[in-house]
């Protein structure tokens, strides 16, 4: 069990900056994010895009903003649980909470901050018959441990960068790699695309274009996969694994079941302190909504500062909070 003062769900820019605001008030933070990296949308959707409305950082590239935020909060030594999705929130007798993830990690905290943006990024699932039936029994939506595919027969599907990159990488690991793509050409990185065509020509992989995986078969575990081409011809091939790679899309997920006020897939808060209708649970950044809400990173930063002042009373109920400027006091690292 991890113990901390504040558990922040979501390690995007607002969740990261919240660590700084908490740290100024001597409150420790632990962040959980479903993505394997910090930065949220900035890392997943637009790492190379310039952002023009961050005060004092004109035109900063999204991934640089994430790096800078990590430097800014380093002294407050936040904990990170990445690549795990928050599933459960359990209130304790003393008012504190235990936050649990899909991988069994538990974080005991006095305050919960939801900074989950648009929700957790989850893999897009193609319309394939019996796909969900074989999840964990041969169907994988991401490659976490490439070694598990050593000397196996695998089928990948998709036409983007990750489908190309994993096809190239796994060609040397798996006994047979088949890539199924709806289109005739690839629009991912040209280098990766030409490498995939080279591998196919050399007979190192099977490339099946203008086709889609239509159904899966097997008794208990995945054994075979049926592929439909654009002339409606069906081919069935044997496989141990199927890895559809169609990017990620955000889902609100279990947050919707926590009895919080929800309006149009956002958590309603009061603007006095960005608290939700449940004591000790706050929501900041794109995940919250209130009259006049603007989904801007800079507004999320503001919300983080106000919110942490309010959370102080749950972490240090005996103490009186006195506001201090960093220019006067500097910052006191943990």
């Amino acid at each position: 069990m991890i113990t901390t003062d504040i558990c922040i769900i979501g390690a995007g820019p607002v969740g990261l900056f919240a660590v700084f605001e908490a740290g100024l008030l001597k409150m420790r933070c632990h962040l959980i994010d479903a993505l394997p990296v910090v930065g949220g949308q900035l890392s997943e959707i637009y790492p190379q895009k310039p952002i023009y409305d961050i005060p004092g950082a004109p035109g900063i590239i999204a991934e640089d903003l994430v790096k800078n935020l990590l430097i800014q909060i380093e002294e407050f030594k936040p904990g990170f649980t990445l690549g795990e999705r928050v599933e459960a929130l359990t209130k304790q007798d003393d008012g504190s909470y235990i936050v649990g993830t899909n991988e069994g990690t538990e974080v005991h905290c006095k305050v919960v901050v939801i900074a989950a943006g648009l929700g957790s990024f989850e893999p897009r699932k193609p319309a394939v018959e019996r796909l969900e039936h074989f999840e964990g029994k041969g169907v994988h939506y991401m490659v976490k441990r490439p070694e598990q595919f050593r000397d196996k027969k695998i089928v990948l599907a998709g036409g983007g960068d990750s489908a190309l990159d994993w096809t190239i990488f796994l060609a040397d690991v798996a006994s047979r790699v088949t890539l199924v793509h709806r289109g005739e050409t690839f629009r991912g990185a040209p280098d990766s695309a030409s490498k995939v065509f080279e591998l196919a020509e050399a007979g190192k992989i099977d490339l099946i274009l203008q086709s889609q995986v239509s159904s899966l078969g097997g008794n208990g575990v995945l054994k075979e996969i049926s592929i439909l081409d654009n002339k409606k011809q069906l081919t069935t091939i044997e496989t141990d694994s199927f890895i559809p790679l169609f990017g990620l899309s955000p889902k609100l997920g279990p947050i919707a079941d926590w009895n919080l006020g929800i309006d149009k897939a956002a958590v309603t808060v009061v603007t006095l302190d960005y608290s939700t209708n449940v004591e000790r649970i706050y929501a900041i950044g794109d995940i919250n909504t209130y009259p006049g809400k603007l989904k801007l990173i800079l507004c999320g930063f503001h919300e983080a500062a106000i919110m942490m002042q309010s959370a102080f009373k749950f972490v240090y109920p005996e103490q009186k909070l006195s506001f201090k400027y960093t220019t006067v006091n500097g910052i006191n690292a943990f």
Partner: peptide, 15 residues
């Protein structure tokens, strides 16, 4: 444009 085509390629149900 190429950017839009790239993004559409990540969708399982695009045509």
């Amino acid at each position: 444009n190429d950017n839009e085509l790239d993004t559409l390629d990540t969708l399982p149900d695009a045509d």
